[in-house]
Design a protein around this nucleic acid. Structure first.
Lengths: 123, 123
DNA sequence: CACAATATACGAAAGCATTCGTAATTATCA
DNA sequence: TGATAATTACGAATGCTTTCGTATATTGTG
């Protein structure tokens, strides 16, 4: 399966944040940051239905769309894809950059320690 | 500045790995994984020159191209971009997924601990 | 009922990414 | 020197993304 495009991902974010939405609701939300015409959003969501990125409920007159995959799953897919394309497939290289890159605060580093501990417990 | 496309990133990877290359060298390397015709690669690299992704040295008959930005800088840019588009701008959310996702081995987790310690020493 | 508002469907245009063919140029060497 | 090989330049086709206009259908309201 292929990555969602930028516009598609923006729409998925709305659906993940707000739950199932009509085209009008998504348009309203998108327009807070990215001005987009109503029929543009409609068309995109129709395409996304075809791609099985969203599912639509046609019960009410204004169809209600929901994201077909959970946000975390898509995030994992996108990270994996980026790791493959830009980090030679090594997730550890990405992590090293994030940790050693200097952008993490002392607090962030502590939080990461905790995550690591929790992860170690799991095995 | 805009993200490099998939094909462009594949070419950049070759240049980062092998250092400055001619079109023929890049084509040869690309063809280990992604069959691409010679003139296709040439055209892409010409476009990348226009986009200032690579710089070309026209001294020799076969022009020599090099990546204009270091790999780490581009990686940081791509991660930042993904974080913005798919993680609501929170790098920590991406990290949590990468750490808690369950793909890291016990060894990996130890290595991360070491990176964190080293990073903490720096402050 | 008739009209305005709102919805979906769909075609099409514009722009970009990717691909390749062909022409023109330059070097090699028999 | 003259044929061959290798290189660059460039146009163009194809397909995808994003955008919007318009036609058509449906709902609600005076």
């Amino acid at each position: 399966m292929t990555r969602p495009t930028d516009a598609e991902l923006a729409i998925l974010n709305v659906l993940w944040n707000r739950g199932p939405c009509t085209v009008r609701q998504v348009t309203g939300e998108l327009n807070r940051s990215r001005p987009t015409g109503y029929t543009t959003v409609l068309k995109l969501m129709q395409i996304m239905t075809g791609k099985k990125l969203v599912k639509r409920d046609e019960q009410s007159r204004a169809h209600v769309y929901r994201a077909l995959h959970p946000r975390e799953q898509m995030q994992r897919r996108l990270v994996k894809d980026l790791v493959r394309r830009a980090f030679g497939g090594s997730t550890m290289e990405l992590l090293q950059q994030a940790i050693s890159g200097g952008t993490a605060s002392a607090n962030d580093l502590m939080t990461m320690r905790r995550w690591i501990s929790e992860q170690e417990k799991k095995s």
